[in-house]
Amino acid sequence: MTKEEFIKTLEEKLLLINDEERKDILIEYEQHIQLKIESGLSEEQAIEDFGDMDELVNEILDAYHINTDYDNKANSKVGRHLSYYLQNAANFLTTLSVSLFEKSRQELGQILIKFIGLCAVIFALWLGTELVFGIFYSALGILPRFLRVPIRNIMDMVVSLFFLALTLYLFYFFICRYVLVNYKPLEFEGNVSRENHFDAQKTVNAVKEKTVDATNSLLEYIQERESHHRVKAHSYSLGNFCLSVLSFCIKCIAVLVLIPIALAVLCLAVGCGMLVVFVFKGFSIVGSLFLVLGLALMGAACFAGIYRSVFGGGSDR
């Protein structure tokens, strides 16, 4: 083994140690070999004096209190793949949000219409399959019950999973086709050994960059919107109308659902807390349970009250 080979192998095996320290150690070893050669030994001999490479590595790692039983090969492989997928997913989502902010109101409306169309197609597909399977299930009626039920359940599951996958794929395809025109997934660096150990760092950096990008374009978007408002250049197209309906619906949902849910959750949380306290204080569990049920009912009553006041008020007008 030559000096370069020795240093290179050692470097690969000491990847767990941080860059600076590792460089330090390698310089020491390199210097040592150099001085040995100067004192008259051959390169080969100087390196052999270090003994078994793995033992040496264990000694060094031990000095850094690193557990040497740790199987870094298997872990790094799984970690590499995992971080690749995470990086890609983060990249996709951030690119998507950035490009959504960059789109104008008109473009957004068009995309929304297309999206509704896609949803309708998926729904129609689902309806069709349900129909076919409904006929199939009634044909299954000739089978005995213990066969019929598991077959039905399994098929239901398969169909659901298939639709989930199909929907996700179609959404992805749709986004790539209409929203992100030039989107390319990141490439997997399968056989680079060194950098991958710092993939986590890279992912963090990439996400950080994207977040900054997203924030910037959000700010730009807000500015742009404000200037649009001043000009009042509203074009009442179909997309615009859809967008307004959607935002109105979201507002309604926020009012109708979020407030009662928050109240009910609050009641339940108070109830559970009281239940715990009462149980620990030695009260009878049945009594405490009634109390919690009462609070839950109160939450439900709040929900019903708000629901009725919103809808009742609507019908009065």
Partner: peptide, 10 residues
């Protein structure tokens, strides 16, 4: 073994 002294120094 000479290699073991460096980690010790470290």
């Amino acid at each position: 073994n000479e290699g073991t002294i460096y980690p010790l120094l470290k």
